[in-house]
Design a binder for these strands. Structure first.
Lengths: 251, 251
DNA sequence: TTGGATAGTGTAAATTTGACACAAAGCTAT
DNA sequence: ATAGCTTTGTGTCAAATTTACACTATCCAA
């Protein structure tokens, strides 16, 4: 929309949009950043929707997804991965959907294919008021989401599955944590993504054997219990590891 | 195209196409069904391309992919899975590409997003002359493909990766084999998908432990060596297995 | 000082993986 | 018919990995 002035010369493609499943982690559970479409839209259906927009004709899909993310959160340089394309011809059923689409300049009658992405953002970096859109945006724990506008619930499901599968192959979970984190937080993160409990000792053993964490001398402060050591993700060691064709972070 | 008369009332969407990576297995190696675009197109670039087409406004993406497959091979009810969406604005560079696009009724100047699928077909079921298109179609071993038209080489790469990854999680390889097959054929199939040698005895041990194969009393006939026992994929046992949340066919 | 909360640690049994070689069965050519 | 070629089919042992499981240490707050 008007946010990104650079794009104003190019035309919106009325047939293709991107939607972003923006994952965060509040140190307790996996959350998703949703847009509240407001009272009016809610008259006929779920208020909450994934952030998304039509694409411009001069940008590629990844760029469009990054733009949507940037417009909403002000973040860039973020882990981002395509989930896939969605596009039943009858995606849009309701009058309220049409109103909403008009408000984001989409053509309500057009058949729209949407390309879904998921992104992993460290919640600590997110400034809620980075853009005017963000006023209507909220983090919602994934487990509490029971319905979404359009086909967004289906997209969310696919994104969760993809993330679950991906984390077994690459240690991308770090993108959801602050730079310094504890093993317990990482543990909890894996549990909430994989949606199953993991034995504490076995988890720690396995993650440490990978040797992609740097333990800092620093400890947690101000917690009402034994403070944990803090760790950092070690990018270089990870690169070494993957360059040997390693692809099994098997959980 | 004109092949499928049912669709003639609906309009083609000029912005969205599907491309299919149709995998086969000739009992030696993994192959892909490619279209030869002919001499004229080849003047400026690779002749070979993935089969694909624009979508109609009244069909969903999976339907479109199935249609492309059906038009080319006459096959339906085939294992099919989305790879993802591809769509750089500058996908189409060459004059020859434009000519080709016109010939399939696409708008050469339009910005086209393509949604890629891969499908697994049992080569034994494929009748090469099922459609007029098939005259220009040929099975090509994946290892011999060095370039393709448009961005199709990139798409092929993504499809191979997806297949490789998927086969570690679900035993979809059976879709590439005839109903009755030998363990050696299955072994060879896994090797060619994973692109690495697998120890014969270890492979057989692992695959048998899954207990999703039914051994038939029948033997191979007419081979110039000790004949192998024939096996069938056992759908029911597989269903039992997956319904317990099993997702590791770990190779 | 005590109580509450979470951090951090080791071991033993079971399972899985990886490496490795030779006899059996059928076909072909003589 | 026989010898030779080709591929099938099979077992074991060592190493690595996985699973299950419980108690002490450290900090904060009351």
């Amino acid at each position: 929309m008007q946010h990104n002035q650079k794009k104003i010369n190019s035309e919106l493609n009325p047939n293709v949009s991107v939607d972003c499943v923006i994952f965060g982690f509040d140190l307790e559970q996996l959350t998703v950043l949703l847009i509240d479409r407001g009272e009016i839209s809610s008259a006929f259906g779920p208020r909450m929707a994934l952030p998304g927009n039509l694409i411009y004709d001069n940008e590629n899909l990844d760029m469009a997804a990054n733009r949507v993310l940037d417009e909403l959160t002000g973040l860039n340089n973020i882990y981002l991965e395509q989930v896939g394309a969605f596009g039943d011809p009858d995606r849009i059923h309701k009058e309220s959907d049409r109103e909403w689409l008009k408000s984001i300049r989409a053509e309500p009658e057009a058949r729209v294919i949407t390309v879904a992405y998921f992104t992993l953002v460290p919640m600590s970096n997110y400034k809620p008021q980075a853009s005017s859109f963000a006023k209507n945006a909220d983090w919602v724990p994934v487990n509490e989401i029971k319905e979404l506008a359009f086909d967004h619930f289906e997209i969310l499901q696919a994104a969760k599955d993809k993330l679950k599968q991906k984390i077994k192959i690459q240690p991308i979970g770090f993108n959801l944590l602050p730079e310094k984190f504890t093993l317990s937080q990482l543990h909890r993160l894996y549990e909430s993504i994989l949606d199953k409990p993991l034995d504490k000792r076995n988890f720690r053993r396995k993650i440490q054997k990978l040797d992609i964490l740097s333990s800092l001398r620093e400890k947690q402060r101000g917690v009402p219990h034994k403070p944990s050591l803090l760790y950092e993700f070690n990018e270089e060691k990870y690169q070494e590891l993957t360059q040997t064709g390693f692809d099994n972070f098997g959980f």
